[in-house]
Design a protein around this nucleic acid. Structure first.
Lengths: 332, 332
DNA sequence: CTTCTTTATGTAACCGGTTACATGACGCGT
DNA sequence: ACGCGTCATGTAACCGGTTACATAAAGAAG
């Protein structure tokens, strides 16, 4: 029966060899006689030996694990992101250490510290951290890929969404389909993407339709938050014929309220989101598609490349989303 | 500047103390003079010292991490599950090592092995593994909580969904609202929950309405798969007035087809699912609600209790879902 | 039959923590 | 003054791997 904790010395003893030989077999090093290899393998098998990862990473200073720090896990955006990361990680034979930083900037730093010694590199998504905090959280030399995070001084590769490009496409689409009074539901103010999208919305409106009003409501990226905002908007009696939310969840919240109240979508009001979470296609929501799982996959692949020392120079890499037009913005 | 890799001996040297004292301060042990503590803390700070987790877990045989092995990461079910786990883990100060086993039973075992030495215990969701495989994957003594997995011989705690209870509630609801010809869309045949639900459906129908036909179509838990099934069903011309899918994704697929074709829901056909993923409420789908994130949370809490040695006896724990009636099954 | 390689194996130090035990200083009771 | 308990600190072994280096055996070359 498999002993629950056989060590390499146990294997060596049983095979009547030294630990070095066992280790060599274990790691497929050269210069091991075929007989020796066989004896080692048999011993490992009868003992049910599994090498201890902690010991191994202590002596090699490599853990074959990467840390993932995310702001939250709510919703399909993160589920897709993690799925993509998992695919890439498992292809490259890395484990994933997952952690969230519950909106608390101190805990983000703490989470990263707790990973010291267990990971070879990290993927950090910290849209609400300042570059300052970020530098503090990431030991200068440690390999890391930043996802949707503030730019530091080029220490780490940065993977971002081309928010400006995406917003421009969407605004153009809404205007083209005849909408005049577009309300933007912005995301949480601390979030980098939210800020960029909001700014891009204002700029694009000014540029493409200077005569129209630029209307922005500050939301929080949640459907329930958006529901409240739209209810207030309706109560205020203000006119509008389109809602462009900074993410799909808010768009769906808006959609829910409009439909409940009995306002026709897209008849009276068009609704558009951002992200293209799987839910969006079910509800026929027009949105900007980011291939989220690819995004996660890309981040891991980049990190692994860095760990294998064939890393391209650390740059800012932007992924441009594509416009997916669906029923919620069909021409009124 | 923070040295990227100061060790405990560096700290000891700088503070002019022994490593033992530093370690004592680090772990908050008693019998440390206030001055000593202060000196140690100052040294740690100036060096930017962070203890190496691998070294620590090697000597304490504790890693303060738990392994999570899931069959897949697709969709909101898993995102919610992981979110719940993360909450509990972070509350208990544990890290999460996440891994999937890509439908390959060998890789499940392999994944678990790779975690040896890096985790204190595991949470395994393996609906498609045999008890045999499971025993092989989990070293006899290692603490683990099984989620929706086949029962072994009581070695590990098992957290399951009360599928029979849930199905019974739903069938009763459908019959009570006047449905006569209910079609069950079953999940993948290898999946334990799918099997239980299917079996429970047949049994319940026989028990509650022996005069009615028992109709089952074998699906695969995906929306697209369900779409095909429903299209075939419609093409066959067979009569039916209700679809009860083994999970929400399939129910949504069915819903999509019915609506596209122009069949009124719930007028002509009622549709019900299972799981209550967030999407379900958006589409007003009647379903059985499992508090998924609580489910994940519960699993971690149970494992942590086990690791803290105040574990109740390993039993089979069933969580009963509740019936959420929505528009898709309103009385025709 | 030496001597020089080549190949296979063993020895022991090391990675960076923890901790049992030893040591030394100090205060207290008698 | 002496012995003893208490408290703070230091020493060194240990956790389970890896690996540089030493060593031994076997084969090649002269």
């Amino acid at each position: 029966m498999a002993n629950s904790s056989a060590t390499i010395r146990d294997v060596a003893k049983l095979a009547e060899l030294s630990v070095a030989s066992v280790s060599r077999v274990l790691n497929g090093h050269g210069n091991v006689h075929a007989d020796t290899r066989k004896r080692v393998l048999k011993a490992m098998d009868t003992l049910g030996y599994v090498p201890n990862a902690a010991a191994r990473s202590l002596s090699t200073a490599r853990s074959h694990a990467i840390g993932i720090v995310l702001p939250d896990l709510h919703g399909e955006f993160f589920s897709e992101l993690v799925r993509g990361m998992d695919m890439a990680a498992s292809d490259a034979n890395y484990m994933m250490l997952l952690s969230t930083m519950h909106a608390d900037r101190e805990r983000a730093i703490q989470a990263l510290s707790a990973m010291r010694g267990r990971i070879d590199g990290a993927i950090v998504m910290a849209p609400q951290l300042s570059p300052e905090d970020l530098r503090r959280a990431l030991p200068a030399g440690s390999p890391a890929v930043l996802v949707n995070s503030p730019e530091e001084d080029g220490q780490h590769h940065n993977l971002r969404i081309d928010n400006r490009g995406g917003v421009t496409l969407m605004v153009r689409h809404l205007l083209a389909s005849g909408r005049k009074r577009i309300v933007h539901l912005a995301g949480v103010a601390e979030n980098l993407d939210a800020v960029e999208r909001k700014q891009a919305f204002c700029d694009t409106m000014k540029a493409l339709a200077p005569e129209l009003p630029v209307r922005v409501l500050d939301g929080d990226f949640t459907d329930t938050g958006a529901e409240l905002l739209v209810q207030q908007l309706l109560a205020s009696g203000e006119e509008f014929d389109a809602i462009f939310a900074a993410n799909d969840m808010m768009a769906l919240g808006a959609l829910k309220v409009l439909r409940t109240i009995g306002i026709s979508v897209p008849g009276q009001v068009a609704v558009a989101g951002f992200d293209d979470i799987p839910l969006a296609s079910f509800l026929d929501l027009t949105t900007m598609r980011i291939e989220i799982s690819d995004f996660g996959k890309r981040a891991v692949e980049r990190l692994v490349a860095e760990l294998s020392n064939d890393a391209p120079p650390a740059t800012l890499e932007r992924v441009t989303p594509t416009l997916i037009t669906r029923a919620t913005t069909a021409s009124g």
